[in-house]
Amino acid sequence: MAPPSLAGRSLLEFLLTLLIGLAPVACGLLVLSLQVEREQEETSELSAVEAIYVIDRVIDTLHDAAGAVLSLAGQRCESALPTLRQQAFKQPNVRSLVLVRENRGYCSTLLGDFDAAVDPGTFFNQRLRLDLRNEITPDVPVLHYRIQEYPFGVIAISDARILQTELQGFKNAIVLVLQFGNDYIWATGNGSASQVPDHKENLQRTVSEKYGYTVHAGYPDGHTWQMITQAMASTAPSLLLVGIITSAVAYWGLFRQRRRPSSPTE
């Protein structure tokens, strides 16, 4: 039976060796966690910027279509309608074009000659309005883009599902939400702030410099930890091997060399 002092020394050596071996494992897991967290933040930020780019391009088509027929505003509907419809047909993103005179829509590619009030106050940034419950297609949200040179103006209307299609192109479980004033739309739905899907982790907010709407990009609660655990599971065997090798080298260098008997002297 080993003396108590020798047993205590062996236990101390074992614990010290174990701590030395665990050090690279703990450091590796910490670095891995920080790396995953950073990658999530970078992906969220980059996705918000890319979303601004693709949504701006969609709105650009509405701007171009509306600007191309602004000179028709003020003309009688029966004379302007053929050209108006031709322009709407050219642009797949445009569902309809509406001519406006003194804040009243009076000519539409869908309705022809009609009369309806246009309230500039309902347009976000004086140009955009996300209509979640329109009368013509109540189950399909539409996006209105308005150009105004008072007393005349043009409104280009697009199926907002085009925006959802663009958002669906983003992967990596990122949640992207477009905000137009108090209205929101995301890849699978639309509604108010209380209905927006969870995307609080690594949240990034980016505002379009051209049109003023906001893109919110983030991940659902718990997603980052899930990614960290997956990364840990794949790298843990390598880290444990490094820890074992480190422990063995430390034990040999610190204790085995010290225990080796010295050579007899003459």
Rank of each mutant, 00 (worst) to 15 (best):
H63D: 14
R95C: 00
V177D: 00
V58W: 08
V177H: 00
S5N: 14
G67S: 14
V175L: 08
G105H: 05
L46E: 12
G222I: 06
V207T: 14
F170I: 06
H223Y: 15
I157L: 03
V196K: 05
V215M: 12
S194K: 13
A231L: 07
T224C: 03
Q168T: 10
E13P: 00
S263Y: 09
A117R: 12
S79G: 05
A116L: 11
S262Y: 06
A117G: 09
A73E: 00
V94A: 04
Q91G: 01
V69C: 09
R57V: 01
V242I: 10
V177T: 06
I136N: 03
V142E: 12
I147H: 05
H223C: 00
P237D: 10
Y145L: 10
L11G: 02
S44E: 04
Q35H: 09
L11T: 07
L81N: 03
F124P: 07
Q168G: 11
S262F: 10
L254Y: 05
Q195V: 08
P261F: 07
A23N: 00
L84D: 08
R133N: 15
T188D: 15
R85D: 12
A73G: 06
S108F: 04
R258S: 12
I59H: 00
I55Q: 00
T137K: 11
R146M: 08
S96R: 14
G181C: 04
A250F: 15
Q126G: 13
A193S: 13
L254A: 15
L19S: 12
T229M: 14
K210L: 14
L34C: 03
Q179S: 12
S192A: 15
S5P: 01
L15T: 13
Q75D: 11
H144Y: 15
S263G: 07
F170M: 12
T246W: 02
R133F: 14
L15D: 06
P4I: 10
Y211P: 01
Q40T: 09
V94R: 02
L239E: 08
S263N: 05
P237F: 13
G112I: 11
